[in-house]
Design a protein around this nucleic acid. Structure first.
Length: 495
RNA sequence: GUCCCCUUCGUCUAGAGGCCUAGGACUCCAGGUUUUCAUCCUGGCAACAGGGGUUCGAAACCCCUAGGGGACGCCA
């Protein structure tokens, strides 16, 4: 077999997700095991959502986890560029080829028309998808429309009968009827390719031999297989990994759980233990050994032994594993060194000291005052939220609204945190003192402490969100109905 | 709704037709070590989704049902 090449292809549209690290781990492991290469490609074809900060964060987070790559935007191999936004000419020459071969066509349908079609299909219980309206436009019509500057996209031609069969390396043959497959947009009206198109072109051009990705892609694999066929290319082997799950078994999501790698970093986990833990999701070391390094995983790995039930991401077990790393792998010296790097970095200390100096009379007052910045706050109960007039429900609402508001901050800084919360307080017609009460309890564990705005700024969104969520759970959580009402209220407030 | 995928203790998993009275780990409980706690050690609770086949023999293979998840975007 020619060289094994695998890739991780994150989209820089948000926080670095543990699911990305999970898939990256298996790709890198498989590549290493086969003496191949592991490539990182940035899929930034969504102009609205992609951003440089997210790209930087994802790259840093993967590197922090030990999941560094052989080729990528910052590490050129022979197959660059590794950022899809820099590969425009490649996509346009390839789409021309498909149009020439009549495997792709211009589509001038308006969004309104597409919405109508969808509605009709939904009502008639037909499969949902493009109805082929522009499939047979004449050359003249097309060039006329293009000259007039009508908005258009390019879609792929898909057979309307028969079935697509492809091999999944973990499941065996998968069959999907072509009737289920939509005439996917390949090039958007902004001229950029969609995932389905760019992904196939790039995987081929980058010589990717094995595509190891999440199960969510199974249903669109026929589109990809078809594109390989249209181009006359040999498709790679496909392996669809099970999806990481929330405790309620739904796909792991930040709405319900910490999913950002930043959270785990900020909460003081060891990157090796997270990596080890992810390696236990869907796979197990022969001999049922649970603590193992990446290198050990590489030497024992067998992708055929991946189990397919979606694994629940169980933080309790991660905690146990991480504890073992701390106890077993670090000398006292290393432990202290790493702990202080994590908690007492120069940058952090400079922010903290001014906050506490005026409030202490002796050094022994320091830890009780700001201990919550270095670890979990004192445990809180329902009673912790007793207030002269704010009810538990009101506290819950304030907390939820605060999360939503804080999540909108792109660049986490003190001033922005303050503005966002103070304007929220104003909209709620609450004095800052009242509004901040539940936040004080959630974040610091006490109704009175150093400035909670400062604390939020220092702790970062991920840790704060986790604490606020925990408090909400202590308070019994928002009912579905309340949450819905609150969502509505929030939307109205934001306008 | 349509299609696809999945299904072993609460959770992560072992299991390639007889080694299964189903093993390990987390959690929880009990006991031991320890001045306390934690660690550590010992023990315990706890699962093959259900029903049909195939087979001398099924957790494993096939079918049906149920349950869960995912996809159905000019997001990836």
């Amino acid at each position: 077999m020619s060289q094994v090449r695998t890739r991780i292809a994150p989209s820089p549209t948000g926080d670095p997700h543990v699911g990305t690290a999970y898939i990256a781990l298996f790709n890198k492991c498989f590549a290493r095991q086969n003496k191949g290469k592991f490539i990182l490609r940035i899929e930034d074809t969504d102009q609205d959502r992609s951003n440089k900060k997210s790209e930087r964060d994802i790259l840093n987070a993967l590197a922090w986890m030990g999941l560094d790559w052989d080729e990528g935007p910052d590490r050129d191999g022979a197959f660059g560029p590794y950022r899809q936004s820099e590969r425009g000419e490649i996509y346009s020459s390839h789409i021309d080829l498909l149009i020439e071969r009549k495997k792709a066509f211009h589509c001038f349908c308006t969004r309104e028309r597409l919405a109508e079609v969808r509605e009709r299909q939904l009502k008639n219980k037909e499969p949902i998808g493009y109805d082929g309206h522009c499939l047979n436009l004449s050359e003249e019509e097309i060039s006329k429309n293009l000259e007039q500057g009508l908005q258009s996209v390019i879609r792929m031609v898909v057979p309307d009968e028969g079935e697509c069969r492809f091999e999944d390396g973990l499941r065996g043959e998968v069959r999907i009827n072509w009737a289920q497959i939509d005439m996917q947009v390949l090039v958007k009206s902004d001229g950029l390719p969609t995932y389905h198109f760019a992904n196939v072109v790039d995987d081929h051009l980058m010589n990717i031999s094995h595509v190891i990705r999440g199960e969510e892609w199974i249903n669109s694999t026929p589109k990809h297989v078809l594109l390989y066929e249209y181009f006359g290319w040999e498709p790679p082997m496909f392996f669809h990994m099970p999806l990481l799950r929330n405790p309620d078994k739904s796909k792991l999501s930040k709405r319900k759980n910490p999913t950002s790698i930043h959270y785990f970093r900020d909460a003081g986990y060891q990157p090796q233990s997270i990596l080890n833990y992810l390696g236990m999701m869907g796979w197990s070391m022969p001999g049922s050994r649970e603590k193992f390094s990446f290198e050990e995983m590489v030497s024992e790995f067998n992708i055929r032994r991946v189990s397919l039930g979606g694994p629940v991401f169980d933080i309790e077990k991660l905690d146990w594993l991480n504890g073992r790393y701390l106890r077993e792998d670090l000398s006292d010296h290393e432990f202290w060194e790493q702990f202080t790097d994590w908690s007492f970095s120069q940058n952090r200390i400079e922010k903290i000291v001014p906050l506490l100096r005026d409030r202490v009379e002796k050094f022994s007052d320091v830890i009780p005052l700001v201990g919550f910045l270095f670890g979990d706050p004192p445990s809180i109960s329902r009673e912790s939220f007793n207030h002269s007039f704010l009810s538990a429900t009101e506290c819950l609402e304030i907390l939820q609204l605060s999360i939503w508001e804080l999540e909108k901050i792109e660049d986490w800084q003190r001033g922005l945190v303050e503005n966002s919360l103070m304007s929220l307080a104003k909209k709620l017609n609450l004095k800052p003192k009242e509004f901040l009460f539940p936040l004080f309890v959630s974040i610091t564990g006490k109704p009175i402490s150093i400035s909670v705005i400062e604390a939020l700024a220092i702790l970062g969104l991920d840790l704060c969100r986790a604490r606020i969520r925990e408090s909400m759970a202590v308070l019994g959580g928002l009912s579905k109905k309340n949450e819905k009402a609150l969502t509505k209220k929030y939307r109205a407030m934001s306008e």
